[in-house]
Design a protein around this nucleic acid. Structure first.
Lengths: 336, 336
DNA sequence: TTGAAAGCGCTAACAT
DNA sequence: ATGTTAGCGCTTTCAA
């Protein structure tokens, strides 16, 4: 630890200073800076000169208060611990930043109560719009949103009733399609490997869809295991080892996500378990790294970036409440 | 695409409404809500009852304007495309959210000019503090920061002069230590595999450090390759294939990061190249997935979460300008 | 303990 | 084309 030396000035250039230096009225400065209304070329130059001479930075807090609208968009996500939600943020922020909006983010850790708190504090900033993950929210969250009149986009889920815009796909269907795919390839002894994270409603819906898909074929899971959160490759390795120790004759495992499935694949590599002949592995998300494995992972590729992008687009366009099914892509890969 | 049906009310409960309903003055409501000044138990109850009856949500825009201080902290990062910066955000946002601060984020795509624009727009919100990646910024960025008087933390680099707080480690030293490690293990035909991303000054510094480390041992790189951005496992596979095609007798490759190195490892698996006997692989970052490989990746584990956490902590504590060397950990692993 | 009143720095009519 | 003047919804003296 070293101490930097540093002065701390406390300036405060306001629009009045700029107006004075430029020899014009405050509203004229405001017009020039916002390119609204009309002003002469000459006035504009005077103003801009004054702005840069003073190093004036407009105060959006005052601007937002006066105009009663902000350029803030709030994004509240469950987690930043794997690449899924950063991908969503990326898609949204490209759209938002190119339109001059600012992103305010919050992380719920998959807890509805935490989400509620974040919604409350973020609404205090009167954001132009709100992006949330999933369709499950507390009653108070819904009430606050309704009372504020803020536009909302809920993303990455389609199984339920939305508040305003909904952009995503059916998690249930994804789970069911996975079961159908594996059963279609002749698998009969299937297991599910998830994590203990009650707040992850999307994972729960996939799981339910998977069981429904098995039931369609008259099957029930040969085994199931939930390892402690967070999901990780290491957790996938361990979880698969546990499953196989308990139920050696499994012929397929559905992992809650690719991170876990990749770990499962490594377990097979290390133990000499032939994939997919002896055991099929199936993930979820379609992460890049899974596709670079010696055998590309069988998985469902989800439109995360696109969901963020589309949600932001609807919000920016002030579109009427819309439901967009972005779909997903089942990637057969080489592990099933 | 389906249209949700939805009403759009436009309420506007203000502190005046609360004051009226509670039968007290506005300033009393303000005091109760901010737990500042003094008020009777009874008054407090009346106010809180009115607040919940009306569903009042304080307007922080007005509050920030009146008090000339916001609870916003801005984080400007180069990218969200791999887990490195989300980890930083995670560390920072835990610290910030628990103190009631809001995170505003911006993504520069590794471009200083973009960073400058983001700094300008974010400063318009008069944030309490600013977290930036690295020490390289445009002159105008520095000028705006100085003029605004905002506190700053620059993270993940220590090689250069900081503006205010600096939290990170020497990227140059990390590259140099990697060279020393590989040379120490008897490697003599070393290559560097990076990506074409001129704005990534931290990667550049590692690369320079690596070359310096080789030079110490009287060596120069046997080959070098830069593949097009972004970095990915697939890019690592391809890059390694390219290197080996051109320089078959390499005995070690230093990858710009773990994502790339993991792809390189997969290439070796697929091609039957014995690691580390025939070829040593070394990455950077210490990603979880790399440690779950059948052979844990040799790499340098970087304190990303911690950097965000420490930076936020210094900022929240209003500490005097401080330089914190968080260090890094060389993980020998099994691929070198 | 509480209320009145003056801003915070800007935008949005409304004049001119 | 440009200036004047009210606010926007709070916080903060300052009195009472």
């Amino acid at each position: 630890m070293v101490i930097n030396d540093r002065e701390r000035p406390v300036p405060a250039v306001t629009i009045a200073d700029v107006a004075r230096l430029a020899g014009v009225g405050e509203s004229t400065v405001s017009r020039v800076l916002r390119r609204s209304g009309s002003y002469s070329e000459e006035t504009r130059d005077k103003v801009l000169r004054a702005v840069s001479a003073l190093g004036y930075v407009p105060n959006r807090i005052a601007g937002a208060l006066a105009s009663t609208e902000s350029d803030l968009v709030a994004l509240i996500v469950p987690s930043l611990a794997n690449i899924v939600f950063p991908d969503v943020l990326r898609g949204a922020s490209v759209a938002l930043e190119s339109s001059g909006f600012q992103s305010v983010i919050g992380v719920t850790d998959y807890e509805e109560a935490r989400e509620e708190d974040l919604i409350a504090s973020v609404l205090a900033w009167r954001p132009r719009a709100l992006i949330l993950a999933g369709l499950e929210h507390t009653d108070r969250s819904r009430a606050m949103i309704a009372a504020s009149g803020v536009r909302v986009a809920e993303i990455l889920d389609l199984d339920g009733q939305g508040i305003d815009h909904v952009v995503g796909f059916s998690q249930h269907a994804a789970g069911r399609d996975t079961a159908r795919h594996l059963v279609g390839r002749g698998r009969r002894r299937l297991a599910y490997l998830g994590i203990r994270l009650p707040g992850d409603s999307r994972a729960r819906k996939r799981h339910e869809g998977f069981l429904a898909g098995l039931a369609e074929a008259g099957l029930s899971p040969a085994d199931q295991e939930l390892v402690p959160a967070p999901s990780s490759a290491e957790a996938g390795r361990i979880g698969l080892a546990t499953l196989l120790a308990r139920t050696p004759d499994l012929d397929a495992v559905y992992f809650v996500n690719d991170d876990m499935a990749i770990g499962g694949y490594f377990h097979c590599l290390a133990e000499g378990i032939t994939v997919p002949d002896r055991l099929a592995l199936f993930g979820f998300n379609g992460l890049e790294v899974g596709q670079a494995l010696p055998q590309p992972l069988s998985t469902i590729r989800t439109p995360r970036y696109r969901a963020g992008e589309v949600a932001a687009g609807l919000l920016l366009a002030q579109a009427p409440a819309t439901v967009v099914d972005t779909g997903y892509e089942l990637v057969p890969g080489a592990t099933s």
